[in-house]
Design a protein around this nucleic acid. Structure first.
Lengths: 89, 89
DNA sequence: ACTCTAATTAGATAATTATCTAACTACTGA
DNA sequence: TCAGTAGTTAGATAATTATCTAATTAGAGT
């Protein structure tokens, strides 16, 4: 895990909102894009940054790309900063 | 707490390193600056961003400014992202 | 008051990031 | 195979961020 890539990804409000939306379950790029007043290419860039950080995983279903939240990376990165060595499952 | 300001502040490796250094106790601006290959004015900008985010508090002691880690803001911000509750940026 | 040390503010510039439009790729179904 | 839908890639530009040098403020001690 590249910690810097993770925090870079988390630094933009749109990307954090995407993660929040994904908490309730996987969603397609289009469905996610519908929540923002931004063009699809712009959202695509945000998706890539989240994927580079491994905060989301992507799966193709037909013509759609379905994004899944990867909660463990989030916990790992944030927990690392808080310095909780004893937060094992 | 401006959640966006907090995550902006956390997005730079130098600023995260400053927080890590402060875990072992309060330190002066100069002492912190000594850990980096950057000029004092540059570090001063980083300190300001951390202070704006309330991730650190500052106290003057003589000619020195002493920075203290504010752990609760860190926990609040990171916990908010991990938590079940949705949040507006 | 003067000087030294600690740190900040100001101003400039280079580097990065976010965003758009236009064009392209990938898959589906008739 | 052709048209339609979903999404990405390319290229350009505007906005933001990080960094430096030079100048300034604040306090301590003589």
């Amino acid at each position: 895990m590249r910690i810097n890539t993770v925090f870079e990804a988390l630094s933009h409000p749109v990307r954090r909102q995407i993660l929040t939306l994904l908490k309730s379950g996987p969603k397609s790029a289009g469905e996610l894009a519908g929540h923002f007043d931004l063009t699809k290419p712009t959202l695509s860039v945000h998706f890539n940054k989240l994927r580079d950080a491994e905060l989301v995983a992507v799966e193709r279903r037909g013509t759609s790309l379905i994004y899944h939240l990867n909660m463990s990376i989030l916990e790992e990165a944030l927990g690392g900063l808080l310095g909780k060595k004893d937060q094992r499952p």
